[in-house]
Computed example of a mutant assay.
Amino acid sequence: MAGPYSAFIERPIAASASRAETLARLDALSRLLDTAFVVPGTRIRFGVDGLIGLVPGVGDLISAALSTYLIWEARRLGLPVWKIGRMVANVVFDTAIGAVPILGDAADVLFKANRRNMRIIREHLEQHGGMAEPGVIDAEYRVVEPSR
């Protein structure tokens, strides 16, 4: 379907940015959302997701919207539907527990859906050779001397 936005919507990941740049951007976003800050004197980390979730009503919806960007990019990176489903389930669970007043906000700090989703992306790309740049052949080789 060609339209004014089709080039933006359907462009492959290699045309917009390298996989390494995309992974770095997604990793930075997941860290910002889930582990950007530390509670002083503890090892408890939380992110913007936990802070936005404190806003009654719309806070968790805003956090879910930010989290769906990772899912959208994961699909563009070629993750299969069942892994995308796992990622969606993580975000839905995170949003659902965050909606519970007070206890949900505490649980939201402990359940880091974006870091989990980033791990799913990385594991998939490592298992399927997607960590290399497009056009780069990653293989073993040996030098064979010509016989005389």
Rank of each mutant, 00 (worst) to 15 (best):
S18K: 08
G50M: 00
Y141S: 14
G129S: 06
I121S: 00
W72E: 12
V55A: 11
A107W: 08
L29Q: 14
T22W: 01
I62R: 00
L79H: 08
D34V: 04
V39T: 07
G47Q: 00
V88E: 11
T22P: 01
T42R: 05
L54N: 02
A106S: 08
G135A: 01
E126A: 13
S6C: 04
R31Y: 08
F37D: 02
V48Y: 09
V100Y: 08
A7G: 15
D49T: 06
F46A: 00
A99T: 15
V88D: 07
R19Y: 06
L125I: 10
G130C: 07
K112W: 02
I97E: 04
D27C: 05
A96S: 14
P101I: 03
I97H: 08
P146A: 12
V136I: 14
I13Y: 05
G135T: 07
T68M: 15
L61P: 00
F46E: 00
P12E: 13
T35P: 06
R19G: 08
V55I: 13
A17Q: 10
A14M: 06
I44Y: 03
S30L: 03
A99Q: 07
A65Q: 09
R148I: 02
L110C: 03
V58S: 04
L51V: 06
A89I: 10
F93A: 14
V91F: 07
L51K: 02
V81C: 13
A2C: 08
F93D: 05
A132R: 15
L79C: 02
L70T: 03
K112L: 04
P146D: 12
E145K: 13
V38H: 05
D138L: 13
P101G: 03
R115Q: 09
A106Q: 03
D49H: 11
R116A: 08
F8D: 13
A17K: 09
M118N: 09
G135E: 05
G47S: 02
G78P: 12
G85T: 09
A64E: 03
S16F: 05
F46H: 01
I121A: 00
L54H: 01
R76N: 07
L77W: 07
S6H: 12
P40I: 02
R19I: 10
G41M: 07
A139M: 14
S63Y: 05
P134S: 12
G47I: 01
E140K: 14
S147A: 15
S18L: 01
W82K: 14
S67F: 01
L125A: 02
E126G: 08
S6P: 12
M118S: 04
V92N: 12
R148G: 09
R142D: 04
Q127D: 15
L61Y: 11
I97M: 04
L110D: 00
D60L: 03
I52T: 06
I13Q: 08
V39D: 03
L54W: 04
I44E: 07
A132N: 13
A65Y: 09
G3P: 03
H124C: 00
